[in-house]
């Protein structure tokens, strides 16, 4: 059974420029101990999906659809305890005037009623912070970016969540530091069995750590597959375009995807990628494609999936 089951998640925002449909009936699941990458470019709805899971959306958002954790709809309190969130920017999400130990301690007190120095040090060790006994009394500005992100992760896992949602956790970091953070996330899965939903645009990070990949475009899930299958047999033209856009040695000109991600005002009866797609037909503009198994066997939302008979 899946740990997390998301069914037809839809998120709308009321804005001054009118309504925005940020997530359009997205369905996916995360199994126990599984690392799932939610992939797409800015504006595709991946961060909004993550915020909806953790109930962190602003007030102008309305959410529909079902979120189940271990088969039941989680109470707000259970959500806060069982699903933890890691933000992209560790500097702006830590309180600059509180010590590292105090901030982790507050999480423990709030959710478990008590905190101890030993438990905080244990958490700092878990996320690979050297000399935890000394770091516990330091302030965020005394730490490097990588160490701050480790503190964020320690706070997130303080209450042993079942699922960790991490939104671009390494994007603000250097590659040599990123490698260490990815190791920490892998260790959490191996040591305390936390599942991970990783929001990222970085296909290198996906290739490194994900078990399964969910690709989003303009609010819809357009393809999902195991990581090896997705990279070997991308089925949706957008997925293919994303993979081909990454600079690769020996390729004289990079593949471009013309145009940009559209802002959806309301749901449409067309494929949202139709205007940018090189395989587009009349059907794509008039009938909404369904997410169904394509030629490679895994689901894709496309009337003309790649890998089939041309």
């Amino acid at each position: 059974m899946s740990l997390l089951e998301v069914q037809d998640l839809t998120v709308r925002f009321r804005t001054e420029e009118g309504p925005v449909l940020a997530v359009d009936e997205a369905s996916f699941s995360v199994a126990t101990r599984e690392v799932v990458a939610l992939v797409g470019e800015s504006g595709c709805g991946k961060s909004v999906t993550a915020l909806a899971l953790t109930d962190l959306l602003p007030r102008n958002a309305s959410v529909a659809g079902a979120i189940q954790l271990n088969g039941v709809r989680p109470s707000p309190r259970a959500r806060g305890r069982d699903i933890a969130y890691i933000f992209q920017e560790p500097m702006t999400s830590l309180n600059p005037v509180l010590t590292v130990g105090r901030q982790i301690g507050e999480v423990l007190k709030r959710h478990q009623g008590a905190s101890s120095r030993a438990r905080i040090i244990e958490l700092l060790e878990l996320v690979g912070i050297p000399l935890p006994g000394r770091r516990i009394g330091e302030y965020p500005h005394q730490l490097s970016g990588g160490m701050r992100q480790r503190v964020m992760i320690a706070m997130a896992v303080a209450c042993r969540p079942k699922l960790l949602v991490a939104d671009e956790p390494t994007t603000a970091l250097d590659v040599t530091v990123q490698a260490g953070i990815l190791d920490v996330l892998r260790n959490l899965r191996d040591e305390i069995g936390t599942a991970l939903l990783l929001i990222t645009h970085d296909l290198g990070v996906v290739a490194d750590i994900a078990d399964r990949v969910v690709v989003m475009y303009a609010g819809r899930v357009i393809e999902q597959a195991g990581v090896h299958r997705l990279f070997a047999h991308p089925t949706h033209p957008y997925t293919r375009g994303l993979l081909d856009a990454v600079p690769t040695p020996g390729r004289p000109v990079l593949k471009e995807i013309p145009g940009r991600v559209p802002v959806m005002r309301a749901t449409s009866d067309a494929c949202t990628f139709a205007d940018r797609c090189w395989r587009v037909t009349e059907q794509c503009r008039s009938v909404r494609p369904v997410l169904e198994p394509g030629p490679a066997g895994h689901p894709a939302r496309c009337w003309h999936p790649l890998g089939g008979k041309e």
Binding site: V205, V206, A207
Partner: peptide, 8 residues
């Protein structure tokens, strides 16, 4: 350290 966009 730079991850390659190829899981294999």
């Amino acid at each position: 350290a730079a991850p390659l966009p190829d899981p294999v």
